[in-house]
Design a binder for these strands. Structure first.
Lengths: 140, 140
DNA sequence: TTAAATGCAAAAAATTTGCAGACGT
DNA sequence: ACGTCTGCAAATTTTTTGCATTTAA
């Protein structure tokens, strides 16, 4: 998906240059903090205001276009809303990688929720550790 | 466990009144934000400084006594370090409930990490939804 | 006794707000 | 043309820091 204009309009938002670019960099890099987004979009739009980034992240989250990924010990990152998935988070380099959710584990979570009379809405699975790249660098 | 003095000393920290009380309220309530902790401990120690709470949370996390629980759309909460577990988080009332990790799902995460050459250190499973109590209130 | 911890106040960082002008539809 | 959005600057909120004093061991 790359048609941000349609995505925004369907969400009841105007397709501004700033919003298109926010979505663009988030899709390109996968997971970005507020600062990350600001710095990256400012490259192509130097007059961008940080306040605009904040306002849009909040707005786009409300509209279900962006999703917050809170991370232990760091600032939250944001990603495009997409099919449920898990995150492998490298505690060395900070990289966040998406992994498909495992249908097996999802089944267990659904079942557990049912037992607990908990109306499950959203799962969040983050695995923290050291990615392959950082392991190799450490070894040398 | 209630012997915070031993816990702190074994972690190389002095057992101050402030620290004992921080651990006390965190254990009592389960999951608390920085502000929560400050307000609660200040009740028994009115001269408490918010800076002291911040400093101690950071220190106790470094020593592995406290653990951060980042939550979508809210400030992080903190809990006592304990056996790995998951969280059921109510998006209505904010309650956080601990649930034992499922050995079945853990096995899948370990296996996935191995496949990905990811050195898994810590799992974080948060299920967001509506707790039974809030469902009942909504119905009425 | 002495290194570590506290509390305060000030600084820094992060986020939010209000509003005038610009822009998308 | 209209209502929304942006950018700015100011206000708030959150978190960190430095330092003089106090405290646990």
């Amino acid at each position: 998906m790359t048609d941000y204009t349609t995505l925004l309009k369907e969400s009841g938002l105007k397709a501004t240059f700033q919003r298109m670019n926010i979505l663009g960099v988030v899709e390109k890099y996968g997971h970005m903090s507020v600062e990350d987004i600001y710095e990256e979009v400012a490259k192509v739009h130097p007059s961008l205001s940080l306040a605009t980034v904040y306002k849009n992240i909040i707005l786009m989250m409300e509209k279900g276009v962006l999703v917050e990924v809170p991370i232990v010990g760091k600032k939250s990152k944001y990603e495009l809303a997409k099919a449920d998935h898990m995150h492998l988070i490298c505690t060395e380099c900070g990289a966040v990688e998406d992994k498909m959710c495992l249908s097996e584990t999802d089944a267990f979570f659904s079942e557990l929720s049912k037992e607990e009379h908990f109306k499950l809405d959203r799962r969040q699975v983050n695995l923290y550790g050291v990615c392959q790249k950082c392991q190799i660098q450490e070894a040398s």
